[in-house]
Amino acid sequence: MENTVNTDYILELKDVSVSYGGGRNAVDKVSASVSPNTVTAIMGPSGCGKSTLLRAINRLHELYRDITTTGDIFLKGQSIFRMNPMMVRRLAGMVFQRPNPFPTMSIYGNVLAGYRLNNIPLSKAEKDCVVEKSLREVNLWDEVKDSLGKKGTFLSGGQQQRLCIARTLALRPELLLMDEPTSALDPISTARIEELILELKKEYTIVIVTHNMSQAARISCNSMFMYLGELIEFGPTKQMFTKPKDKRTEDYLTGSFG
């Protein structure tokens, strides 16, 4: 399998299926490839398995019993199932639907949480540097630089989500996985996160799950459309929105269902 992998792609999915035990697969034989420095949107009606697919890339399903993942996923040409799960999760950073800053840690501590959790010791100067750089990357530095010692939970929802992105970026991941990162946010915060994603594209590769078609159109280069666990269509976003190949994609994009 390994020698068939094209290392030009940063992420390759091969026949990935996820089952919650019994019944239909939540994700069924999805194959796709993602090139570096792109934004890939995963769209589809709720319950189509888009979040489940994203979480499989982070190997989060292993935390729960009764969830089995089959097929193979390659990160920079290496199968993630042959890597240490902790390594996988560090290389593929995850941003969740609802902002989840650690309530017991300060803003400063939250940005450095990855280092602390991974037992990587840093000097004070290194810490300050990582915190400032990461917070600047998410355009949060100016807003919080005077209250780094405060708890992260005091921030607004949008700020919290940017803090969570900073927390993920601090570990310098190869890939950024975002699971509907703006679904819990107001329009203004959403716009700021979208701007941020476009900026981050220069340095990172992003896969983002969204139920918002216009968001996908605004920020993504490529799009996947999933329906009932299957990958129906995958291609450049522009093409998908203007000339969808599949009837189901067209129905979804025109609002006939979902």
Partner: peptide
């Protein structure tokens, strides 16, 4: 302890013990 917080820790590469020590127990 909310699952979202634990997943947050795991997604940063923490082991189960590290998640317990730095997230579950403090919360």
């Amino acid at each position: 302890t909310p699952a979202a917080l634990k997943e947050g820790a795991y997604s940063l590469g923490a082991t189960r013990m590290e998640t317990i020590r730095y997230v579950s127990l403090p919360v």
